[in-house]
């Protein structure tokens, strides 16, 4: 069983690759079909965020262990322009560009844990987790 996967995100095609790898890993970890779809959707949104705002970045996904329960952790990093107002970016419906403004806040709703760190001019890191219950 593969426990860690790294996907370089350089174009929209890579969004599909990242989400398929995340789906495969989540299935391996024993997540239900419904949860696997939620995880894949969350990966899709953070990957799209990289393509739309930073042009390129990477997504690392791996198995984690919490208090007894295993889970999946997804870390999306880019060295793009960064987000000056993270709170605003996390508001539902807020979009600086062509999107619906649901990507990042939507991904947060789909996962159990969601953390975003961004520095203007340096880039953004999104870390999210879902636990197998």
């Amino acid at each position: 069983m593969e426990n860690e996967t790294l996907t370089e995100i350089r174009s929209a095609v890579d969004i599909v690759t990242a989400r398929q790898r995340g789906r495969a890993l989540a299935l391996d970890l024993g997540f239900s079909g419904g949860d696997v779809t939620l995880i894949a959707a969350a990966i899709s949104e953070v990957a799209r965020n990289i393509v739309d705002h930073a042009k390129q970045g990477q997504i690392v996904m791996h198995r984690i262990h919490g208090k007894g329960d295993p889970g999946i952790q997804i870390i999306a990093t880019d060295e793009g322009p960064g987000i000056s107002d993270v709170a605003q970016a996390m508001q539902y419906g807020y979009s600086t560009r062509k999107g619906l403004g649901v990507g990042l806040p939507g991904a947060k709703w789909l996962m159990d844990e969601f953390d975003i760190i961004s520095h203007v001019g340096k880039g953004t890191t999104v870390t999210m987790k879902k636990w197998l219950r």
Binding site: G33, G34, T37, V102
Partner: peptide, 13 residues
Amino acid sequence: QPDVAFAMVQLGL
């Protein structure tokens, strides 16, 4: 599909 619909609802789509 049901799972896809559920994820869409969760995303507010």
